[in-house]
């Protein structure tokens, strides 16, 4: 499993414990927990000094952690299959409506072909099956240079470019 962050292959400093029965002190350092773990062990998790991340499944709306966003250095949104497009909406909510500025990570079935959509809704890191094909990912990110819709990233829309003053 590789991690692509802001266009670079990087080592993942987080351990995903969201499937673990007990978090306890068995894992040191930065961890990613599930929504249920966060809700049940909130105080204990806040006592840890290492960075904290949370993973939301596609049926868990980000409203559920709206008031907790400052506690998370990473929010991972899960694509159980690439066909499940709910996380695209969740990402925009987090970025545009709730103002989340930390790392927004796409996990699950994350494919090259969806990369540009994910970037546009605000994801800035991607858990990919292998980082061997990093060059393909760089190409994919540059596939399209024209966008009609406003998104959660910095890209200017065609409408803005058409009517740019000066």
């Amino acid at each position: 499993m590789g991690l692509l962050k802001n266009g670079q292959a990087v080592a993942d400093s987080y351990t995903d414990v969201s499937e673990h029965e007990v978090i306890g002190d068995t894992v040191a350092g930065a961890i990613i927990v599930s929504l249920q773990q966060w809700q049940e062990h909130r105080d204990a998790l806040l006592e840890r000094s290492a960075p904290l991340g949370i993973v939301l499944r596609s049926n868990e709306k980000p409203e559920l952690i709206r008031s907790d966003l400052s506690h998370f250095a990473v929010i991972a949104l899960d694509f159980p299959t690439f066909r499940d497009g709910r996380a695209y909406s969740h990402a925009r909510m987090l970025r545009e409506r709730f103002g989340y500025q930390g790392e927004l990570r796409a996990v699950g079935e994350v494919l090259l072909e969806q990369l540009h959509y994910m970037q546009r809704v605000g994801f800035n890191s991607f858990a990919i099956a292998s980082d061997a094909a990093l060059r393909d990912w760089e190409t994919a990110a540059a596939d399209m240079s024209v966008w009609y819709q406003p998104g959660a990233d910095e890209r200017a829309t065609a409408v803005e470019l058409r009517h740019k003053v000066g």
């Binding site: 066909r83 695209y88 909406s89 925009r92 540009h116 809704v121 009609y148 819709q149 065609a158």
Partner: peptide
């Protein structure tokens, strides 16, 4: 134009 390659609504 708005619906073409809409990043949020393609899946």
């Amino acid at each position: 134009q708005w619906s073409t390659l809409h990043p949020e609504f393609s899946y």
